[in-house]
Amino acid sequence: MGTSAAAHKNDKDQLRNEKLNFKITIPDEIELTTGKVEKILKSALAHLPNLTAVAIVSVATGTCLAQYSRLRSFNPAVAASYNAEIVRQKKQAIAALSMRGERLEDILIPLRKQLHLIRLAKNSQWFVYLVVKAQDTSLAVAREVLKAISA
């Protein structure tokens, strides 16, 4: 117990000391501030220190507005455009079924060892894309954190 608490504290300290200089580029047509983007990324890292990657992505273009990855081999920008296409396809499906009053909230994709989560902003212009290891974080926790930070 004692050692794990200490390890947790170390994690947090390391996180605080880590240089969190995110490259943020927000096109004019998206209603979002760099402050908000920074806040989302920082609170994601604070709540889920073990996360694999987190990114904020434009729905319309699929470009990554900001990103953070703990794994050198995992580039969320590569996945961003595909995930934006998933969001657009699902919105088309909702439109094709003419579901009135229904709004896309989130898309959860559990893989065998990773969980991929997408949560749309209220204005549907951007979404947060989160990747965590299934062994570290449960789907429910990841979903709740994502809901809280992107509100």
Partner: peptide, 23 residues
């Protein structure tokens, strides 16, 4: 699209369990 994303990320030994979409 998700299968394409996984190929692009080179997640070759991963399998999509399911996709959950909340409206």
């Amino acid at each position: 699209q998700k299968q394409k994303a996984m190929t692009a990320l080179k997640l070759s030994n991963e399998v999509i369990e399911d996709i959950l979409i909340t409206l």
